[in-house]
Design a protein around this nucleic acid. Structure first.
Lengths: 275, 275
DNA sequence: GAAGTTACTTTACGACGTAAGGAGTCGCAA
DNA sequence: TTGCGACTCCTTACGTCGTAAAGTAACTTC
């Protein structure tokens, strides 16, 4: 479920995002009519809470309204549509992204920290992974996050054109890792079946239904036997906090993949340094 | 919208995927009752056509049924639920993935071709990007595609454990690039507003609403001015086939990012070759 | 007090997946 | 030949969703 962002009145949407109509509201000129019981901020906060707790699929106008003791329609006084609300939520949580990193020379450490923070952020708010990237929300906090990454990348001294592509490359990678973990957690929560149980049951069925598996996929088998006996899950060490199997898998992919990516960037730096 | 796959009867689901109940069907023992007017394959084909043409959001049981001249409920005779149908669709289209690549030494060329083919495949069927990766479908064609990639990676001589992570890293990267393009196309189709138009309008609004943009995001500005004056779209050369702006952007990210990734892999190979 | 504006509610519409039950069609045993 | 049971496919219905339209009540301003 990729959710697309506001397509309504673009000007109103941008005003809300950048809070450029706030001055008037803060004057507290009450004007005629009953006192507003809600506010855009309260609605965004409630909506983020719903999405964090119950996932994007559970994010309905009715659910957000209920959390605020109102009906769904009450929200439309403050927010033009669900799409715009989603934009606001997206930008609001991006305020959590750290902005200060070591930029005194060790670009590798800086980017590693950035990637880790971004991963954790996306796992805290897994629903952000389901907001379309193609037409960005263009809010102040999203831009701030982008600026942070660009700042780190600029310390490598690489040319601007290449930098642009590295932003995308790193983002895709982190998003992919986060998505895998987030989806695994969501599947476990939705089905009540842990990943270990799921894999165990599916492996057995696979053996029944595809007895020629080893011959059909020789390279896959060679890799599996050469690395770790994993699809039948490794026993979780007793007493140890058990990180579920595919989550551990994804985190290792994150560590290794990030290293490979940074090695590639290092190669690029070496190439421009000695032309 | 991330869509989760079948959670129903796992055995039936796997049987359908691997067609291990097909022999009986192919015997054409008619049995009692009216002749089946449909088949699992026909339904899957129709569903893929709907999803390809109108996107995942338009993939409803009613729409698939209509395309086959039936009601939505008629499909439930052949397929247990929409989730299982999605599994079947997912695996079915993966049969399109090429399986033969140059594995005679030039692993770089092989992986580049693989990545390009995978990207094109995912752009042909953008809805596959919206199927959850955490609990894979485990169908024969998905496994075949995985086997192909592993085969290519094994020619690098890297150890199995590292290989596993590279599979994920490369997949995340390609999926990310494909997702950006797919979402851009979908947004353009849904709104009727081209990406150029969209960027142009949004840039103007951004100037209104955030006049201090340049001071707030200095690194972003430095990168933009240092690379290409792009958000205000570059004029499409007349007569030339105009690849939309963010699609071109994404394809460049693909080329550059893939190069960086392969450089990283090359570094890993060099490290193990000279221990 | 009357008028006008605003916050919020109720009701309603057409989409969705799919459960339940019914109608019609066919092979096969009696 | 008849009727049973299995089978395909249909209609209807329920509870979800976003949100349009219209109504009610609270409040400021004249």
């Amino acid at each position: 479920m990729v959710v697309f962002a506001g397509q309504g009145d673009a000007r109103r949407s941008m005003s809300l995002l950048w809070r450029s109509d706030r001055p008037e509201q803060q004057d507290r000129r009450p004007g005629p009519g009953p006192r507003p019981g809600l506010s855009v901020d309260a609605i965004v906060t409630a909506a983020v809470a719903v999405a964090d707790e119950d996932g994007m699929a559970a994010l309905s106008m009715r659910a957000v309204g209920e959390r605020l003791g109102r009906t769904a329609m009450a929200l439309y006084t403050y927010v033009p549509s669900k799409s715009e609300l989603l934009d606001l939520m997206y930008d609001a949580v991006h305020a959590e992204l750290p902005m200060e990193y070591d930029d005194t020379g060790d670009w590798r450490a800086g980017l590693t920290d950035w990637a880790r923070d971004t991963l954790e952020f996306q796992l805290r708010h897994p629903w952000v992974l389901q907001v379309s990237q193609a037409r960005p929300v263009l809010g102040p906090h999203e831009y701030a996050g982008l600026d942070t990454l660009v700042h780190l990348l600029r310390t490598t001294g690489l040319e601007a054109r290449l930098l642009r592509r590295l932003v995308g490359t790193l983002s895709h990678f982190v998003r992919g890792c986060a998505g895998t973990v987030a989806e695994a957690r969501q599947a476990a929560a939705a089905t009540g079946e842990s990943d270990e149980e799921w894999w165990f049951a599916r492996s057995a069925l696979l053996g029944e239904v595809a007895p020629d598996f080893a011959e059909r996929y020789p390279d896959l088998m060679a890799m599996e036997t050469g690395s770790a006996p994993q699809p039948p899950a490794p026993a979780p060490a007793p007493g140890e906090e058990a990180v579920p199997y595919p989550e551990r898998e994804a985190r290792e992919t994150f560590d290794v993949g990030l290293g490979v990516l940074l090695d590639g960037i290092e190669a690029a730096i070496g190439r421009t340094a000695t032309p």
